[in-house]
């Protein structure tokens, strides 16, 4: 019985953690954010920006895994190759508010650009 309850709680936790709860976002005030690509994640993975403002995202890839080689902002039709250990700047001006994912080609590295009014 205990195990069953624990299992169901675990499922509830998975749903809550991966779909409902949101990670803390980094609010980009100074128009430029450095995003480290390492250990299978983008840090920060959630960047909050203001609509209409140009933002410079500076990606620094430290992860040698070839998956990390590309970062794709499919909503903005942007994709960039990230050479190992070399900062790559992506400049964009989001016009619409909403949440836009940026990922590696295989969707294993995931980040969100939150555009607020």
């Amino acid at each position: 019985m205990m195990i069953n309850i624990a299992g169901l709680l675990l499922i509830a936790f998975i749903i809550w953690w991966f779909w409902i709860a949101k990670p803390k976002s980094l609010v980009a005030r100074n128009e430029s954010v450095e995003i480290i690509v390492e250990n299978g994640v983008y840090t920060p993975a959630r960047v909050e920006v203001i609509a209409g403002q140009t933002i410079r995202l500076k990606f620094l890839r430290k992860d040698p895994n070839p998956c990390a080689e590309q970062v794709v902002f499919s909503d903005f039709n942007i994709s960039e190759t990230l050479p190992l250990g070399q900062e790559v700047e992506i400049k964009l001006t989001p016009k619409q508010t909403g949440e836009f994912d940026f990922t590696c080609q295989m969707q294993m590295f995931r980040g969100t650009l939150v555009v607020k009014a």
Binding site: P23, N39, G40, V41, A45, N65
Partner: peptide, 19 residues
């Protein structure tokens, strides 16, 4: 080790992947 660090890091950012 890299699978475990990757898993933990992505868990922290509310993500789950291969790792």
């Amino acid at each position: 080790g890299h699978f475990f660090t990757g898993a933990w890091k992505s868990f922290q950012s509310h993500n789950a992947n291969m790792d």
